[in-house]
């Protein structure tokens, strides 16, 4: 009797796990379908392990004499990345100002601008390069164009999001003293956004070095062409040399760029 008078201690029911089970089931189904679709077979990989092993064994020792032959294409790769990143950064500036909704307060300009930016970001750099090769022919030029557009996608996107997060105070102060649009941008936005911008440009440069290394596969200059030809001729020691050279360049540039970015932010 007394028990029924005390308020019942209702243990809260644990939240339904149905959602988790469903998610897991959907993911599982997707995986199984993908597995069948791609014709993947773990047995294949297992059976071919000798081939994989011999491929790796064939790579050693690397062909050190080949180094002096690939210095020039390696430098070309770096040049493409430098120029592509720079052009991309320059083009990004107006794009950033158009996209950031605290700079450009006109929604029917900022939203279409962002839409175009998102479209650019969906196209992989190798595909851009393939298209530019079709337009300009083989060489560095299509690679530079592809990297430029690719860079705009990264730099503009990251920077305009940072610009939207800047302190509003200086913007209002500049408006209050009657600055025109140029003064407003130069003295309230640029000082706050410049460090982010430079940091993202450096980051994009790192990404572009990696991208430039493969653009040669579609004929857009740089070291990528050499990967293709050496793999085609089954010259694995040379492939190994290429890999080591790429590794060294990428690690050095990542290291320098990281140090610079740490100093900036």
């Amino acid at each position: 009797m007394s028990q029924s008078q005390t308020p019942k201690k209702t243990v809260p029911r644990p939240p339904s796990k149905l959602k988790h089970y469903l998610t897991a089931a959907i993911i599982l189904i997707l995986l199984v379908l993908s597995y069948q679709r791609t014709g993947s077979s773990i047995m294949d990989l297992f059976n071919n392990r000798d081939q994989m092993g011999s491929l790796i064994v064939d790579m050693f020792p690397p062909d050190w004499a080949y180094f002096k032959d690939i210095i020039e294409p390696m430098l070309e790769t770096i040049r493409m990345a430098v120029i592509g990143t720079t052009f991309g950064a320059i083009i990004s500036i107006p794009v950033i100002l158009l996209c950031a909704n605290n700079v450009n307060r006109i929604p029917w300009i900022s939203y279409p601008a962002r839409f175009v930016l998102n479209l650019i970001r969906t196209i992989p750099e190798l595909l851009l390069a393939a298209i530019f090769v079709a337009i300009f022919g083989l060489g560095m030029i299509p690679g530079i164009f592809a990297l430029t557009i690719f860079s705009v996608g990264i730099i503009a996107k990251l920077t305009y999001e940072s610009v939207e997060g800047i302190d509003k105070g200086p913007l209002e102060a500049m408006t209050a003293v009657g600055a025109n649009k140029f003064q407003w941008i130069a003295f309230s936005i640029i000082p706050q956004a410049a460090a982010y911008f430079v940091s993202y440009v450096l980051y994009t440069f790192e990404v572009n070095i990696r991208a430039a290394a493969i653009l040669g596969l579609v004929g857009a200059g740089g070291i990528g062409l050499y990967y293709d030809s050496n793999l085609g001729f089954f010259n694995y020691p040379r492939v190994n040399t290429l890999i080591i050279a790429t590794l060294v360049v990428v690690l050095i540039i990542d290291f320098v760029s990281n140090k610079l970015r740490e100093k900036l932010l």
Partner: peptide, 18 residues
Amino acid sequence: PEVVLAIIFIKAVGPGSF
């Protein structure tokens, strides 16, 4: 780069999605 890896895997398991 994933493309270079793909070239190497093509040598191992043959061309195709896998």
